[in-house]
C-alpha cells in the first residue's frame, strides 16, 4: 500500500468511525419509551374522575346521570395520557353492535377519549346538533363525530377509525371497573 492510499483509507475509516460514534447520541433523541407494563390500563383498574372537584374519586354508576359523560383515568395511571377515557351513561335500550355489549353495564360505556384523528380529547355532546343526532361524541379540533351507542363508529368528519371501546363492569359498590383491554389501538395510528 502506498502512502497516498494509506492516507485515503485513514481518512475514510476516521470519518466512518466518527459517524458511527454519533449513532448512540442520535438514538437518545427518541426519548424514553413509556413502561407499558406499569402504565397501561389493565382489567380490574377502577376508573376515577380526571377533572373537577371529584378528581381522583372513583366513578360510580350513581355519580352522573343518564346522557351525561365524564372524563376518567384508571386509578393511579393518569401519567399516561393514552389512558384517558370518556365514560358515558346512555339508554341501555339504544345500545347496538358493533358495541361490545358484554363490556357495558346498565347503559354505562367507556371509550378512549383520545381522538383517532389527531389525538385531541373528545367531548360528549351537551346538546343535539344538526349534523348528528343526540347523543354523540365530537372532537373540538377538527369536528370528528362518533356514535357512543354503536361502538364509537365514525358518524362524520375526518376521523379514520372508531374510538376504541374500553370494556367495563360495575363492582358491588357500583364503581366502574375495567374488564378488558381497549378494543383497538388508542390515538393516532401511523
Amino acid at each position: 500500500m502506498d502512502r497516498r492510499r494509506f492516507a485515503d483509507w485513514s481518512l475514510k475509516v476516521g470519518i466512518g468511525a466518527a459517524i458511527a460514534s454519533a449513532i448512540p447520541g442520535v438514538l437518545t433523541l427518541r426519548g424514553k419509551a413509556r413502561s407499558a407494563a406499569t402504565d397501561a390500563v389493565a382489567p380490574g383498574d377502577r376508573l376515577v374522575f380526571a377533572l373537577g372537584q371529584n378528581a381522583g374519586q372513583p366513578v360510580t354508576r350513581g355519580g352522573f346521570s343518564q346522557n351525561e359523560a365524564v372524563l376518567a383515568y384508571p386509578e393511579g395511571k393518569s401519567d399516561n395520557h393514552e389512558n384517558l377515557v370518556l365514560v358515558a351513561k346512555l339508554d341501555p335500550a339504544e345500545l347496538k353492535p358493533p358495541l361490545d355489549m358484554a363490556g357495558t353495564a346498565e347503559g354505562v360505556v367507556a371509550y378512549s377519549a383520545i381522538c383517532t384523528h389527531l389525538g385531541c380529547t373528545v367531548r360528549f355532546s351537551e346538546e343535539p346538533m344538526d349534523a348528528a343526532p343526540f347523543p354523540h361524541i365530537h372532537c373540538p379540533c377538527h369536528s370528528a363525530l362518533f356514535d357512543p351507542r354503536r361502538g364509537g363508529i365514525v358518524m362524520g368528519g375526518p376521523a379514520p377509525r372508531p374510538l376504541p371501546q374500553l370494556p367495563i363492569r360495575l363492582n358491588d359498590k357500583g364503581e366502574v371497573v375495567v374488564s378488558g383491554p381497549f378494543t383497538s389501538p388508542v390515538g393516532v395510528k401511523a
Partner: peptide, 8 residues
C-alpha cells in the same frame, strides 16, 4: 399535541 398527531 396536534403536531405530534400529524407527525405520527
Amino acid at each position: 399535541a396536534i403536531g405530534y398527531g400529524i407527525a405520527r
